[in-house]
Structures are given as structure tokens and as C-alpha cells.
């Protein structure tokens, strides 16, 4: 019993009745969502449904209006919570990469560990190079972001968030800005990270990835979570009509 209870308390991310307004606009409606350690959760939904808003509240890039959100043991509703503490442990990968344009690839990866974690320079560099190798862009270590292809940029961005040794990673449409032939390189890196046990919340339209990697699928529309289902169950037969329509639209036959 006690073990079970502990297990329960160990959720990495937990939304309880979260409401979010942009002025009058109700962007998130009564969100209840739990992501356990090691879980991979894929968030899908139409454009403008609130996917980015949802994922960005997790690391405090967006605040919320009501409810409770606990991330890695920190209470985001508490104004005393230091968001940097959360961001140290919860990395984020963006649609448009957001690499530091004034830094080389290697510097991009080493900067936050150096400034935030005060990692020893030698160890920092070795770790960064290992990460670059593992995402397949070690040969670009001295290049600037503008010299990379989109796929390379995104793999560097993933390496950058891994450099903090995070406990969870958030992905907001990581392949939506990529040319089709580069998408698989990025998805493969993400699959590898998932197999290594990372807790992941992934907003994506890549249903192949979702089927293969996700433990759970969240379908969100109009700021509301309409389905929260095991991935295999969801893809066999989504319960919600809007989810069915959405799926039939994005899965190409």
C-alpha cells in the first residue's frame, strides 16, 4: 500500500483543474492530466486548440489562471516557486529550434550547463561532444546555426536540452518546420531518447511516431482534453467524434 502511494506521488507532471485565459479568451478548460515518470505522452489536436499553451504551462513559459500544476515536485501556482529550478530539470524543444544564433553548435550546448549548473569546463565539453555524436551532428560542432539544415538544427536543439540532464522533455511540434526528408532523422533521435526512459510530452502530427512510441495520447480541442487514452486503444478506435474526424484528416491513405 505504502509503495503504491509513493508511486502515485511520483508523477512527473500533474495538472489539476487548470484554467487558462488570454484576457477574455478561454484557452485551457479544466485541464486534468498526469504524466508519470518515464511515460511518453503525445498531444494531438487541431491548430489553435491549445496544444502549445498546454505544453508551455509545464515549464512556466505560459502562466495559468486557476488550478494547480505540479512539475517535478514544484508547485507552479505558487509565486515563490523558482521557474529556473523547474527548467533545469524539464527541457523544451521548439518548432523553430530557437538555437542561439550568436553561438556555435558546441557553445549552444555548453552554455546553460556552464551558467546554470556550473559544470566543469572539460566535463561539459566532453559531455556536449558525446551528445552531438549521439544525435549525429558532431562534425558541425564549430558551425553556427545558420550553417545547418533544419533537421540538423533540431537535433542540436535536442542535444542542447539533453545537456542539462533533464528529468523530462517537452516537444512542441519538433518536426513541423522540417522538410519531409529530414523528419525521420529527428524522430529517430526522439525514439532513442524515449527508449532510454525519458519522460516526454510531445505535441506532434506524426501519427507513426505516436503509434510506435507513445504510451498515451491526449486529444485536445478548443482548450479541452477530449480524450486521454492508451495509445494502442486510441488508434484502434478513438471514442470522440472530433478525434475520429481529426485522425481521418491527418492520416494519409
Amino acid at each position: 500500500m505504502i509503495a503504491l502511494k509513493e508511486e502515485k506521488e511520483m508523477a512527473m507532471i500533474e495538472f489539476k483543474n487548470v484554467e487558462k485565459y488570454y484576457d477574455k479568451f478561454h484557452a485551457l478548460k479544466n485541464i486534468n492530466l498526469k504524466v508519470d515518470k518515464g511515460e511518453v505522452v503525445v498531444v494531438i489536436g487541431p491548430s489553435g486548440s491549445g496544444k502549445s499553451t498546454l505544453i508551455r504551462t509545464i515549464n512556466g513559459l505560459e502562466d495559468f489562471t486557476e488550478g494547480q500544476l505540479i512539475v517535478n515536485g514544484y508547485d507552479l501556482a505558487d509565486s515563490k516557486t523558482d521557474l529556473n529550478q523547474i527548467r533545469k530539470d524539464v527541457g523544451m524543444v521548439f518548432q523553430h529550434f530557437n538555437l542561439y544564433d550568436n553561438k556555435t553548435v558546441l557553445e549552444n550546448i555548453m552554455l546553460a550547463p556552464k551558467l546554470v549548473l556550473k559544470r566543469d569546463p572539460k566535463e561539459n565539453k566532453e559531455h556536449a561532444m558525446r551528445l552531438l555524436k549521439s544525435v549525429g551532428v558532431a562534425d558541425k560542432a564549430e558551425s553556427y546555426p545558420r550553417q545547418l539544415s533544419g533537421g540538423q538544427k533540431q537535433r542540436v536543439a535536442i542535444a542542447r536540452s539533453l545537456a542539462m540532464k533533464p528529468k523530462a522533455l517537452l516537444f512542441d511540434e519538433p518536426t513541423s518546420a522540417l522538410d519531409p526528408e529530414m523528419i525521420d532523422d529527428v524522430l529517430n533521435v526522439m525514439k532513442k531518447i524515449a527508449t532510454e526512459g525519458m519522460t516526454m510530452v510531445v505535441v506532434t502530427h506524426e501519427m507513426g511516431f505516436a503509434r510506435e512510441v507513445a504510451d498515451r495520447v491526449i486529444f485536445i480541442d478548443d482548450g479541452e482534453i477530449l480524450e486521454d487514452e492508451r495509445a494502442d486503444v486510441f488508434f484502434k478506435a478513438p471514442k470522440e467524434k472530433r478525434a475520429q474526424q481529426f485522425l481521418s484528416k491527418i492520416i494519409k491513405h
Partner: peptide, 18 residues
Amino acid sequence: VDDGQMEGARANGMSFMQ
């Protein structure tokens, strides 16, 4: 400067001033 630069840095754990 593109907003994504600040966002990337903050999400990476840096403070505003860093």
C-alpha cells in the same frame, strides 16, 4: 532579436539576465 532566442534560453534554465 527574435523572441525565440529569449524563449530558448529561458527554457534552457537561464535567468533573464543571463
